Amino acid sequence: MTAQQWEDGGPLIPQPAMTREALRDAVRRIDMANLAVLDKECNEAFDRAAETGAINPLRFFLIKWATHVAIHRWPARSAALHEAERIAGDPGATEEQFRVAMETSSRILAEAQREIGQ
C-alpha cells in the first residue's frame, strides 16, 4: 500500500501546530475516544516536567500526539495502521503477513513523523 492509497480521501483536518491546545482540539475533532487519554498524558507530562525541571516530558508528549493526529486525520491511513497492527498481533499470521504488516506500520509512522517535522 502506498501513501497515495492511504490518503485518497483527503485529511479530515489540517495538521495542527504542535501545541497542547491545538493538538487537544484536533483530537477532540477527529478522535474523541482518545481525548481523555490525551488529557491524562498531558497532566502526567506536566507533572514530570515540574518534578525534574526538564522539558523532555512535555516535548515527548507533543511529538507523540502530533504523530497521532498526523495519522488519524487521514481515515485511510489510520485504518491501514490499525489493520497492520491487527495482523502483526495475530498469532495465526504468516511470517510474510507479519513482515508486510511491520513494513506498513513503519512506513506510516515515518510519514507521520516527516509530516510533523521530526
Rank of each mutant, 00 (worst) to 15 (best):
L35R: 08
I30Q: 08
R77D: 02
A66H: 01
I63H: 10
L62S: 01
I116P: 00
L109G: 11
S105H: 10
N43S: 13
R99H: 13
C42Y: 15
R28I: 11
N34H: 15
E96P: 03
I63G: 09
V69S: 02
W74C: 02
A17H: 14
A26D: 07
A50E: 13
A50F: 07
G117S: 01
N56G: 11
L58A: 06
A101K: 00
L35C: 05
R77F: 01
N34Q: 15
A26M: 08
S78R: 13
I87V: 11
A45D: 01
E41M: 10
I87S: 02
A33K: 12
E115L: 11
G92I: 03
I116C: 00
A22H: 04
G89K: 05
L62H: 02
E83W: 06
R107E: 12
G10V: 02
V37C: 11
M102S: 11
E51T: 11
A112L: 05
T104K: 01
P75L: 06
G117K: 01
H72I: 03
G92V: 04
M102L: 13
N34D: 15
L38M: 12
T67R: 13
D90V: 07
E7G: 04
T67H: 08
L81N: 03
D47E: 14
C42D: 14
A54K: 15
S105I: 09
E41C: 07
W6L: 01
H72N: 13
A22M: 07
A49E: 05
A101Q: 03
G9H: 10
H72G: 03
E83S: 08
Q113S: 11
E95M: 09
S78N: 11
L109N: 14
W6F: 00
D39I: 02
E7S: 07
A80L: 02
R107D: 12
D90L: 06
A49R: 00
A26H: 05
H82K: 14
R59M: 12
T2A: 04
D47T: 12
T67Q: 10
E115H: 08
P57C: 04
D31P: 04
F46S: 11
A33Y: 05
A110P: 05
E83Q: 14
I63S: 10
E111S: 06
A54G: 06
R24S: 14
Q118A: 12
E44K: 14
L81F: 07
E41T: 07
D31W: 09
D39M: 02
A110C: 09
K64L: 06
E83R: 10
K40F: 12
